[in-house]
Design a binder for these strands. Structure first.
Length: 212
DNA sequence: CAGCGGATGTGCT
DNA sequence: GCACATCCGCTGG
């Protein structure tokens, strides 16, 4: 992993499994401002700052895929925290989630939108400019974000905390102001659809619609 | 801004 | 078999 950093700073290391080993609402809030890093086969890297997440808080949450029990599709969510849960929705778009806890409690955080890194952030992270690539597509909206990072079903259950992973998360360099609202596209979930489990960086133009 | 087509895996009957 | 899905982009008013 250090091989992807030109001038790695000792204090900037991927988030450890402990970070993810908590309920999804807590993790979703604290992922805002963190940097998602994707390394491709050719060694090049795309890195973005997360600005929008949604928490799916376990089997009692009717909007959460784990609420129907364990299936072939959602089994990654029942595994250990710190892995991805990726699925295909509407037959076209991939959605990229981070599995949370505590323990094996089937929580997950949907990664909905991200922003390009500022020059200051690049500098603070010590990311190599040569290996850095800008995303080829929009990073607003879960389907777009997954496409921009080329994340697909092949990455389901991928471990974000493993050495030399294709994907990992770096800690946030500042704490953003957060606004909350109901989650998108879960009207079927009754009262759960109205809970404020969507978290956005306030005033970020990269948050998906409808803006909070 | 509402409406809708796209394209297919998934879970239930 | 079938209805629906943690979406997106385009269309028409």
């Amino acid at each position: 992993m250090a091989g992807t950093l030109a001038h790695p700073r000792a204090d900037v290391r991927p988030l450890l499994r402990d970070f993810y080993d908590r309920n999804a609402a807590q993790v979703a809030k604290e992922l805002l401002g963190c940097v998602l890093v994707r390394r491709f086969q050719d060694g090049r890297v795309v890195a973005v700052r997360l600005v929008e997440t949604e928490a799916y808080v376990g089997a009692h949450d009717r909007a959460c895929h784990s609420s129907i029990g364990r299936t072939a599709r959602n089994q990654a969510m029942f595994g250990p925290p710190g892995r991805l849960y990726v699925y295909l929705v509407y037959g076209l778009h991939h959605c990229c989630n981070v599995v949370c806890g505590p323990g094996l409690d089937p929580n997950a955080v949907l990664l909905r939108a991200a922003a390009p890194l500022s020059a200051d952030e690049l500098c603070l992270l010590g990311l190599s400019r040569e290996r850095m690539r800008s995303p080829l597509h929009s990073t607003s909206g879960p389907g777009n974000l997954a496409r921009a990072l080329d994340v697909s079903l092949a990455h389901d259950a991928l471990d974000l905390c493993a050495a030399r992973s294709a994907l990992w998360v770096l800690p946030r360099l500042f704490i953003p102001r957060i606004v909350t609202g109901p989650r998108i596209g879960v009207q079927y979930a009754g009262a759960w659809s109205r809970r404020h489990l969507r978290f956005c960086e306030r005033n970020s133009p990269f948050v998906s619609r409808p803006r909070l």
